[in-house]
Design a protein around this nucleic acid. Structure first.
Lengths: 120, 120
DNA sequence: TAAGGTACTCACCTTTTGGTAAGTTATGGG
DNA sequence: CCCATAACTTACCAAAAGGTGAGTACCTTA
């Protein structure tokens, strides 16, 4: 009936030093989720990402993009022009992930009001 | 081909004060995810949760469980016995959510090594 | 009488996270 | 000559998250 955890986590124990903990932290970080989701709609420039992930600071945008790029989830294409132009997009792996993230965020979006107002 | 965002988020903008931001923060919090996942395997006691979400402190366990309970995702059943016995389980809404969280964590678990070692 | 078990809470302190404002780069346009 | 532009980086500071160790409750068992 319900989804179940992979064998390695079957007993529900999540080892503290496990790489999956680190990855989970990256992909569930506040700004990480928002950027991944934004990019799931297509390639975008730095300034566009800033606008779409409303409230993010330049510092956090840079930091988050670097982490996602190192993780092979986001691709950075810089054009050697002045003023600079940099396009960000999801890698194949990033798409795999965002396909799982989208239903989650959609659920959060649909249930947010009920949850915050303490209904049901 | 790819999953897409709900209409309210169609332009990829996530309003800063939006309730869905708050909910997203709760359900993607480091310990929140782990507890939700652990409970997806069935009802558990406080001490069992402590053990399974390896590394969590009592303070964070209490705090996280309170948030999840307030959000209507986790049910707290306290039995009036000494020593105390409290059982935690997912609500229906909690199950809906964990069904979306499980594939995400499974993906993270399967890809963690490649991501951390910078492969692909 | 004293210790043990369970599920907490609290006060205090450290660590991490994140914001702000300034600086950087190189070129084209006025 | 100088300002605007885009995509950053840096230093500094404030805020939030989180750890530690102690304390609490109450009954049961030794």
């Amino acid at each position: 009936m319900h989804a179940h955890l992979p064998d390695g986590l079957a007993d529900g124990v999540f080892p503290a030093g496990c790489p999956s903990r680190t990855v989970l932290d990256h992909i569930t970080s506040k700004w990480g989720v928002l950027i991944l989701l934004s990019l799931s709609e297509g390639e975008q420039r730095w300034s566009e990402l800033r606008r779409r992930a409303e409230g993010i600071s330049e510092k956090m945008l840079a930091q988050t993009l670097k982490t996602l790029e190192r993780d092979g989830l986001v691709l950075r294409k810089a054009q050697p022009v002045i003023p600079p132009r940099v396009d960000y997009s999801l890698t194949e792996r990033g798409h795999e992930l965002s396909d799982l993230l989208v239903p989650l965020v959609t659920w959060a979006y649909n249930n947010a009001d009920d949850i915050i107002n303490g209904q049901r």
